[in-house]
Design a binder for these strands. Structure first.
Lengths: 369, 369
DNA sequence: GCTTGTACTTGAAACGCATCAAAGGGGCCG
DNA sequence: CGGCCCCTTTGATGCGTTTCAAGTACAAGC
């Protein structure tokens, strides 16, 4: 069970150490027979290159690290997916670490990746990287995802404020008079969504707006609780439009309202934010604004490649990606016909078509709107 | 931007190379003043240990690798989550690679991890590891997840056959006469589910069973297509019970049936498999059998630890984890009351309680059953 | 003052590989 | 037959650590 090393292969194949190394890294330099002989020996012995030694001797490897705050969040997965595909396209590997909502862990994995001679590192940070001036000085390209700050560096973010604005405009278009925003703006992204909503509504002082904190974690249960509370209000204090700051929240709200006998969208309309698959994969689609996670991951890798190829020191570089991946033509409330609703398969088709980056902002039109 | 190395820190701090190394790895060996001096120097210079060199010099690091076939599959994420938590508990890092449904990539990352001096590697393989005898010979502990085969090695799997059996028994309990199973048994896991269904129904020759292939990827769109086709059958050829081999499929089926004016669960009952969050986070819960992904990840790491600590060569070791994470007392169809239905917040509570491993097999009871 | 012990610190060796200057081995031309 | 060039292979060197045997300094005990 002792590890087979390159010198074992060399001895066994009757060639020198450097030749085996060449077989691995510059096969075109070898005579075909030699190459074949070496490859056979490698397979016979079960030799596996020691990546650590490779990296140490040869500098950076072709791989990127990605630190995500959670894995069970659809948006993060879209980022991972986009980053993965783009990385593979350039011949790079992508390794993912889960920071598990813990900023100590986030920092830990970040340093780990930087120390592993990764060619580049990406993070979807929990807090502003302003707190991390140290990272910017590291000799490894780094790109921050889904965040926006004023430190020098590379950033790719969805336009969260625009998402709020879109939802608000939708509410206005639907003739809303009283809007309730559900959720705790625990993260900058959510704060920006709320900001966008407020800005859009500033032009409509006649529309009443209320923001209800849903509890620390913005769970479906929190949404359900708020939904139940809304349902029990007297009809004239009840909103006619509810915005979940996340789709999970919105989904909880819908459940509660329906349970309590409130008609959705008859009496109250509900929409969410996040583009969470549960919104459109569920058996009843929920309207949601979809931030282009896939696109963000892709752009992130592109920025990494840019830094690697130019070897230029990082300047401030912000990229803002439009807020829609999947689009459906907006229709008036009266036109909504359940048969014509956005269906998973339609969405899938739309998402394929729109997978090239777009700045268009649009929404899925679900059954609760 | 030149990389700071340990010798720079040593020179700057006026101590020797080995002392700095000790500061990092055996701080208890140093005089507190020395330690403090070195730590300050490290921070001032922004020194970051080169992980490659560390691993090369010091042998394996405390980290595990996990190769998953996809990231957007809830079950894989549960595995990742369980593995992550268990790994952290033992002080190990967990790095995740996405094989993107590509067996070449799967193999690639597997080798990569093994070559990186990982302390152990886990895979949720796409095909049977029988094809990978080479892996078993590697000097790195490996555990296969969510699969079952006869080669020597360590395996942790959910009891997929039991899942099929449970669903079938549920159908029987509901008085089903004609069952349609929707989905392509493209993976061993799905095959086993079908097998379980058939076995359970073998005792009930009066129940008609039909298996309908849903297309290559088992998407919601595929489910929708089959659902639509079912809806258009004459009433006497229509099943009274549909099983989606995955929740995504089942969800598509429900959408189609409802769209076509078939009452669910009035005319047709529908259930899924996977314990996919979309089943219970959606605004209308879907009945599903939940394989304990979290538990599988946890057990996987435990098996890794076992191998590391005993340093014993891998013998055959199968662990089968029961098929329920979240349980709800089953009630008769007539008792279903939408107000009392399983709600996300109930589920969340239940899942917390049941997070300790259990072999009990049970299901969520959704609105479509 | 000498020994023994304790508490730290030192620096050389080794980890497995990529690199690259240099050597080797033809073939071709003159 | 000698000289030249090109293609292939060689092996010493160094990558940044950890480790560990050996060293230093100082204190306590006799």
């Amino acid at each position: 069970m002792a590890k087979v090393k390159i010198s074992d292969v060399a001895r066994e194949a009757g060639v020198s150490l450097g030749t085996v190394s060449n077989a691995l890294n510059h096969p075109e330099k070898l005579r075909p027979e030699t190459l074949k002989l070496i490859n056979e020996t490698i397979n016979r012995l079960g030799y596996l290159p020691n990546q650590s030694a490779r990296q140490l001797a040869g500098g950076a490897t072709k791989s990127f690290g990605l630190v995500l705050p959670r894995l069970d969040h659809g948006f993060s997965l879209q980022i991972a997916s986009g980053a993965h595909n783009e990385a593979r396209k350039h011949g790079y590997d992508l390794l993912i670490a889960n920071a598990d909502n813990d900023d100590i862990l986030e920092d830990h994995y970040l340093r780990y990746f930087m120390g592993t001679q990764m060619s580049g590192v990406m993070v979807q940070p929990m807090a502003s990287p302003d707190w991390h001036p140290a990272m910017a000085k590291m000799p490894v390209p780094i790109v921050y995802l889904d965040i926006h700050c004023s430190e020098p560096g590379y950033y790719v973010a969805a336009d969260n404020e625009a998402q709020g604005r879109i939802i608000a405009e939708l509410a206005i278009a639907r003739g809303a008079h009283h809007i309730v925003v559900v959720g705790r703006a625990a993260f900058m992204q959510l704060t920006l969504r709320v900001l966008g909503i407020h800005k859009a509504l500033a032009l409509h002082p006649d529309i009443k707006i209320e923001v209800i904190d849903a509890g620390e974690w913005n769970t479906a249960a929190d949404g359900y609780g708020i939904g139940a509370q809304i349902a029990e209000r007297p009809a004239d204090e009840r909103p006619d439009f509810v915005v979940g700051l996340t789709d999970v929240l919105a989904s909880g709200v819908v459940s509660a309202l329906v349970d309590k006998g409130i008609s959705v969208p008859g009496q109250v309309r509900v929409a969410g934010c996040d583009g969470n698959p549960l919104a459109w994969s569920g058996s009843v689609p929920l309207t949601t604004v979809a931030p282009p996670g896939y696109e963000i991951g892709r752009k992130g890798v592109q920025l990494l490649m840019e830094q690697i190829e130019n070897k230029a020191p990082a300047k401030i570089k912000h990229i803002r990606v439009g807020s829609a991946a999947r689009t459906v033509t907006a229709v008036a409330a009266e036109d909504i016909n359940r048969q014509e609703l956005v269906r998973p398969f339609l969405l899938e088709r739309a998402s394929t078509q729109a997978s090239s980056q777009t700045d268009a902002t649009a929404i899925n039109l679900g059954a609760y709107l």
